[in-house]
Design a protein around this nucleic acid. Structure first.
Length: 262
DNA sequence: TCTCGTGTTTCTTG
DNA sequence: TCAAGAAACACGAG
């Protein structure tokens, strides 16, 4: 479930390769994750190149090497791992970067993820053109109010999934934000009564998820909706009522019909 | 065997 | 012309 915090966790999985040279690149060129990319150029550029730095923004990651830049989007089922040197890649390990004492692996069974490649001294457009983080100064109550005004007729659940305004917020995080803010997922963007409270909740859920999941991959506390929303059944951790589930904005949405009446 | 699904892009509809 | 919803992508899990 790679959303904001999980992406940060996966980014760190390659940290042990920082400053080290890539000795061998293996990839599955036909895999959908390479769409639009010349994998031969990627292989040539990364072989012998040192991994210099990495960053995560929303659901996008960037890995800067000496000779090239690699972008990683995990889609729904992608992941990054660090394995030992002698690691034998499986069929879903589409990009494998061998270093002297370890192997950096990008794996994605469903192939919804995407790898990007760039050569040049500056960071590429697909990195610099991203929307400001919801934790940045640029994401103000005024920008949130203006965005809601432009999306007056869409349910708030669908709006929170729009990456051009809320980079990194995915399905479970959107449900968590609405549950903590006590807003029904079906409320239309133009009907949000307290934009300031929603703004605060968006920031606190993202900040805490990054702190908890982004640090070591552990789960949020049990008084979050998170632990109760998966699968069937489940009770609201605040009032104990049965949770409801229904697709909103094309995604399974989970909410408490009592706590989130409006 | 069948249904479901954590994301994004593209197409269709209003 | 724009916004919102639906479909498609591919495959493992239940």
């Amino acid at each position: 479930m790679p959303e904001l915090a999980e992406v940060e966790y996966f980014r760190k999985c390659w940290d042990s390769g920082l400053g080290k040279r890539v000795t061998e690149v293996r990839c599955h060129p036909a895999a959908r994750v390479f769409r639009g990319m010349k994998t031969k150029e990627l292989t040539v550029a990364l072989t012998g190149s040192r991994l210099l730095s990495s960053d995560a923004h929303g659901k996008q990651m960037i890995f800067r090497f000496e000779n090239a830049t690699l972008g990683v989007h995990l889609g729904m089922t992608g992941e990054l791992r660090c394995e030992g040197y002698g690691f034998d890649p499986g069929k879903h390990d589409h990009l494998v970067l061998r270093q002297k004492t370890r192997t950096l692996v990008f794996s994605d069974p469903r192939l919804f993820g995407r790898l990007l490649f760039h050569q040049g001294p500056a960071d590429p457009d697909w990195w610099t053109a991203q929307a400001p983080s919801v934790l940045s100064k640029e994401f103000s109550q005024a920008t949130l109010a203006a965005f809601l005004l432009r999306r007056q007729r869409a349910p708030i659940k669908s709006i929170l999934l729009m990456q051009q305004a809320f980079p990194g917020v995915g399905n479970w995080m959107a449900d968590e934000i609405l549950w903590q803010a006590r807003i029904s997922p079906t409320t239309l963007g133009g009907k949000i009564r307290d934009v300031g409270a929603l703004w605060k909740t968006i920031r606190s859920v993202c900040r805490n998820a990054l702190r908890i999941i982004g640090t070591d991959g552990s789960d949020p506390p049990t008084d979050w909706l998170f632990s109760h929303r998966w699968g069937r059944g489940g009770f609201c951790p605040r009032c104990g009522l049965d949770l409801e589930r229904s697709p909103i904005g094309g995604r399974t949405t989970c909410w408490c019909p009592r706590c989130q009446e409006r």
